[in-house]
């Protein structure tokens, strides 16, 4: 079977199980082959290794359909690939930042089906069929989102690295109804670390957007 003929795996019941059991069996066999090939010339080994890898890579990926910033993507990913690494390393959507990779800083915050979540702790394969919004999808063309405007106006950042995560979180904070007082904003923005220390200005920016009352 050619890779592009692979039927889409619905992740249903045991539908994919069969394929993955195949992979394990294959890998076991191929390691056996590799073991046999240990003594021959290094060239043969290298060739086999390369073939192994291509087939292994093929078996290790699963199809995922995502709508990212309004655009449909049909992708093949390894189950261990996080949404964050998929965005940054495969789709060149580098606006979503990696600050810790362990769910401890909020730099990777994106919206999945409208909710703010951490993309570093989200396996891409588990997002199948969902709508993802990243910082790149917040503005309408050249027209910045009101929260982006407010961050510029109140200087809600310095180095800018945590900023996409802050803004995605801030938009959600207002939409959730958690921006009614400065203290509430502080609490509900505490999942986004800013090491430059722009918190005070971020609170001002969110307060203004919330008071503006526009539909964001």
């Amino acid at each position: 079977m050619q890779p592009d003929q692979q039927p889409p795996c619905p992740h249903e019941e045991n539908a994919c199980d069969h394929k993955h059991d195949d992979r394990r069996t294959f890998l076991k066999k191929s390691s056996f082959l590799a073991a046999v090939a240990l003594t021959p010339a290094p060239l043969i080994k290298a060739a086999e290794k390369k073939a192994d890898e291509k087939i292994a890579a093929y078996f290790e990926t699963v199809p995922v359909n995502l709508e990212i910033n309004g655009k449909q993507h049909s992708l093949k990913v390894e189950p261990r690939t996080t949404l964050l690494d998929l965005l940054r390393e495969q789709l060149d959507l580098t606006g979503t930042k990696k600050g810790c990779d362990w769910g401890q800083c909020g730099a990777c915050t994106v919206h999945v089906n409208g909710k703010r979540v951490l993309s570093c702790l989200s396996l891409a394969v588990m997002q199948d069929g969902k709508k993802i919004t990243t910082i790149e999808g917040l503005a309408s063309g050249e027209q910045l989102h009101p929260m982006q405007e407010a961050f510029i106006k109140y200087d809600g950042f310095q180095c800018g690295y945590c900023t996409p995560g802050q803004i995605m979180s801030a938009v959600a904070c207002v939409r959730e109804g958690h921006a009614h007082s400065e203290d509430q904003i502080r609490e509900y923005m505490s999942g986004n670390i800013c090491r430059c220390g722009a918190y005070r200005n971020i609170v001002d920016a969110i307060s203004e957007v919330n008071k503006g009352g526009q539909n964001i």
């Binding site: 959507l93 580098t94 606006g95 979503t96 930042k97 990243t134 910082i135 790149e136 917040l138 503005a139 910045l144 982006q148 961050f151 510029i152 950042f157 800018g160 690295y161 900023t163 996409p164 803004i167």
Partner: peptide, 11 residues
């Protein structure tokens, strides 16, 4: 600022 708030800034 615009580069930083839109994610266009490349680190």
């Amino acid at each position: 600022g615009k580069m930083k708030v839109t994610g266009a800034a490349k680190y």
